[in-house]
């Protein structure tokens, strides 16, 4: 309903590095963070700074949104696009895009990235996962020993 009230024709998104993207309102529909911002305005154009998203990442997200917002594309074409979209990405890219999805509050894109990341860490060791996410274990050695003892079958 809010979208109908709004008369905005063009939205300018400004990434953390100053890159500028002009998009139509239907492209940002899924970005709830952006949506809540423009719902309150009554003007033709609007500029929205997104200080937590880099230009490269925003460009990819917009590309994804354009494909998925398109009514001309078939379901198969969108699936094919999704497959290629994550295929060319490094794990760092995936994590940054996941974070951007969370910041922009894009539920389906967040789930899509989470799925791609889950597929990479499934069946991997604790050490692999820590390395992948660059996480340091914050268990004290005593705590960790306790956890392992409690479930010793997991580490046989």
């Amino acid at each position: 309903m809010a979208a109908e009230k709004s008369s905005i024709k063009i939205i300018t998104l400004i990434a953390a590095d100053g890159s500028v993207f002009e998009v139509e309102p239907n492209i940002v529909k899924e970005m709830k963070t952006v949506q809540s911002y423009i719902d309150e305005l009554d003007q033709n154009t609007v500029s929205i700074p997104l200080p937590n998203v880099f230009g490269n990442d925003l460009a990819m997200i917009i590309e994804y949104c354009k494909k998925h917002a398109s009514e001309e594309e078939t379901k198969e074409a969108k699936e094919e696009f999704d497959f290629e979209f994550v295929k060319r990405m490094k794990s760092d890219d995936k994590l940054r895009l996941l974070q951007a999805a969370s910041y922009l509050n894009m539920e389906s894109f967040l789930q899509f990235m989470a799925k791609a990341i889950a597929a990479e860490i499934e069946n991997q060791s604790v050490e692999f996962v820590r390395d992948y996410f660059q996480i340091e274990s914050d268990f004290t050695p005593e705590e960790e020993a306790e956890l392992r003892k409690e479930n010793e079958w997991a580490f046989k």
Binding site: L110, A114, E122, V129, F133, S137, F139, A154
Partner: peptide, 19 residues
Amino acid sequence: SILHKLSGSMILTSARYVC
């Protein structure tokens, strides 16, 4: 969201021990 997409065995043997 990521953890929710992992198998139970992955949660059991690996993911929950990360931090």
